[in-house]
Design a protein around this nucleic acid. Structure first.
Lengths: 191, 191
DNA sequence: GTCTATAACGAGATAGAC
DNA sequence: GTCTATCTCGTTATAGAC
């Protein structure tokens, strides 16, 4: 499957995976080239913007990937509160299956570069907005008021974000389970 | 004030501040030495454990500093829900005052090193546990059941953590305000 | 404890042949 | 588009004088 990907796509895949685990500064282009099985010069051929340009596109790549997962999880349940619990579960399994290595694909890069590399920061902002938009949509379609839906979307994404980090550090799914339950309770308190 | 600090303390201060903004991999020991106005060799003199050892102690240093702030903010209000709102506000002001540069002092380092540098990961885990403990204490003293207090403490810390990142990326206090309101609502739903 | 100097290595990035 | 080779710089870390 990976072998059928084009060179450019393979580079992006490997780059986003490595930056998820090691961050932007901790990931060398040489390592990306090696793991993607391409020559170093090929990376610069496809990404003339250098490391910053590559990282920016890797964030966009991860954004789309994560948004797809988010959308699928939310669509698995009709009730929005149940859907958020399902989402928390999916993420928890994803975490455990990777031995607590793979969390949010862009957080590490975001934290290292915020206020320092505008190009990357903007890609992160776009991603967060998209993810919140998907959650807000789900709530809106279930009859939630516009303002409530938008505010709840903020907290759903932010709480899951924090819980993911906590789960990674403690190597237990508990923070994700608690987050799912509390978010469902919060959502249900608005109707 | 900074000038009156001992050399070792000054190194820790600068190290934790820089690692908060740039992460572990993005912070060079040379930069720490320069900004702390000490010789490079002095850093290795005080921290023979090298960069990993220094980072571990920097996390512990930031832990204590942040715990103090947390405790003060929580103590500013008698009611636990109001106290959490106050905490969110204090953090939001701290963020804005630093032009959205200074968020949680250990998150960036945590994400880069989780699953890769056990020494640092453990210091992060201890910090998170301490912070949760302070919130749980506040709730317990207000009559919340033990289990509820512990679970709520998880979500309070995790939600603030995620909201901080969101506020930094979007450069607005809105995520913190929403987080404060939602957390208060969640807490109040338990009594 | 702090100074200067430097070793050993890996980083980002580029050149030019093919 | 990919190969090999290389440049330049910054990194962690250490040595030895003072």
């Amino acid at each position: 499957m990976v072998a059928t990907l084009g060179t450019r796509a393979r580079i992006l895949d490997v780059a986003s995976r490595l930056m998820m685990r090691q961050g932007y500064e901790g990931t060398a282009i040489k390592q990306i080239a090696t793991e993607a099985q391409v020559a170093l010069s090929s990376v610069y051929h496809f990404f003339p913007g250098g490391k910053q340009g590559l990282a920016t596109e890797a964030v966009r790549h991860a954004d789309e990937h994560f948004a797809q997962m988010l959308q699928d999880a939310l669509a698995s349940k009709d009730d929005p509160a149940e859907a958020v619990v399902a989402l928390a579960w999916v993420v928890a399994e994803y975490l455990r299956d990777s031995d607590w290595q793979d969390g949010c694909p862009i957080t590490a890069t975001a934290l290292e570069t915020v206020g320092r590399i505008p190009e990357i920061q903007q890609a992160v902002e776009v991603a967060f907005e998209r993810w919140r938009g998907l959650v807000a949509d789900k709530l809106r379609r279930s009859g939630f008021a516009e303002a409530d839906a938008q505010e709840l979307a903020h907290t759903v994404i932010n709480t899951l974000e924090g819980a993911e980090l906590s789960a990674q550090v403690s190597r237990t799914p508990e923070p994700m389970e608690i987050a799912g339950r509390h978010l469902a309770r919060l959502i249900n308190s608005y109707r």
